[in-house]
Write a protein that binds this DNA or RNA. Sequence first.
RNA 1: CGGAGCAUAGCGCAGCUUGGUAGCGCGCCUGCCUUGGGAGCAGGAGGUCGUGGGUUCAAAUCCCGCUGCUCCGACCA
Length: 483
Amino acid sequence: MAKQKKEFVTEITPQQEDFSRWYIDVIKKADLMDYAPVRGCIVFKPEGYELWEACQRELDKRFKATGHRNAYFPLFIPESFFQKEKEHVEGFNPELPWVTEAGGEKLEERLAIRPTSETIIGHMYSQWIQSYRDLPVLINQWANVVRWEKRTLPFLRTSEFLWQEGHTAHASEAEAREETMKILDLYTDFVETELAIPVFRGQKTPSEKFAGAVDTYSIEAMMKDGKAVQAGTSHYMGQNFAQAFDIKFLDKDNQLKYAYTTSWGVSTRLLGALIMVHGDDRGLALPPRVAPTQVIIIPIGPQKERERVVNHAEDLRQRLLAANIRVRMDAREDLSPGWKFNEYEMRGIPVRLEVGPRDMDNGQVVLVRRDTGEKTPVSTDSLLSALPQLLDDIQANMYAKAKAFRDEHSYTADTLPELADIIREKRGFVLAGWCGDEACEKAVKDECSATSRNIPFQPPQEMKHCINCGKPAQHTVWFARSY
RNA sequence: CGGAGCAUAGCGCAGCUUGGUAGCGCGCCUGCCUUGGGAGCAGGAGGUCGUGGGUUCAAAUCCCGCUGCUCCGACCA
């Protein structure tokens, strides 16, 4: 058996050997995506797309619960719109695809394919908002966006990706800032609760903030190779976009004022994070709360027992379905049980339910956890009460494991050589002091290609001196290499 | 966009150095057999060798261009 195990894993490159290869192997073997015939674009295959649907479901629930409503704005953005906000146009120009011709005729004004929708939404808001009574406007959009990236990686950075972008307008700075933080909390809750990924919350440094924002906040997650993924961002725009797009309202005091806006988003990049945080050398591992299939039933038995076992297994399936458990059964006869065991572990299904003649005679089934590999016989009678508990345990355990890993790979450093050494040798996040000078931030990057991830609200430790120049630190910052 | 590597059957690869009728494993199809950790036997199908040019009597093989993917850098959800 040990020998077979070894042979099996040769189909997936071990993480230790080459993490990048492992990632590509897993997403292809688990059938999450395929490369599309356009540079940097992927097809989200059903297994992958259903994961995104699970994210949509959970996020949408939270958006609605906080008073947001969905709407949809055009894919095309007139070129002139980009010119209205200086930082914004500079930030996005390099990665915009343009439509210059349609219906065989050259367009009078080029149309960008949206990289994000602040501009066109700002334009609409300026027409919708007249009075303080029209505020706040709380709108979210589920959409695809395009950024012509130089370097792509499935899910984590693709030329076209799926996301949600929230855009809100408020009467006061305080209210807009509150919204910005409320969404950061919402993202934190979603990512930690549903995806079982612990995050570091904080504020982006000026060089890392969104083009056109006053302040950008992020949640940052650590992958198993120690690199960071920005899992979500929330931006306070101040009146920058309101001024650029003339979003004005008449306030209670009869004064015409610019609105305060926010925007915030998470994307299909989350799927990449999900895979890299929980996956192992046997393949994917999905947290039960977002797993498209939570339980896979494998009926086992020789030919003469087959019908009896499958009927019983089908009965179990119906009962689990009725209990709102996402369950599937694989009763194919041409594949051995062992093959299926490996297959569904590779696909990350949280729980496998094995049932064979011996189990039936004992009035039990065997439950196998993907996260620990633990096999437990459970009496058929108590299955319906045991399963939800087991799924909760797995979810909690996956979060705990991810958090333990992250904490084990989080360090502090007082000097640049020390920081660079940790980044290169140990991998992970490094907490360091920063004087606030962009040059010092860049020095870190030049030394070891780690960038500032964010300035945590509550750093585990206050760092006293700038990592590069040694002057008194103005901020304590997380540094890491990132995707 | 710079540096490196790769592209041959659905998947993983060999063949290329030294040009001469395209191979292996897995998967797939048929039959028998089999089911508690990727079973076995027998027979079979499947490839414009990424693409466009060039050299040559002859190109998967040598040369040039292009495209895509992977890795390393500069830019980003």
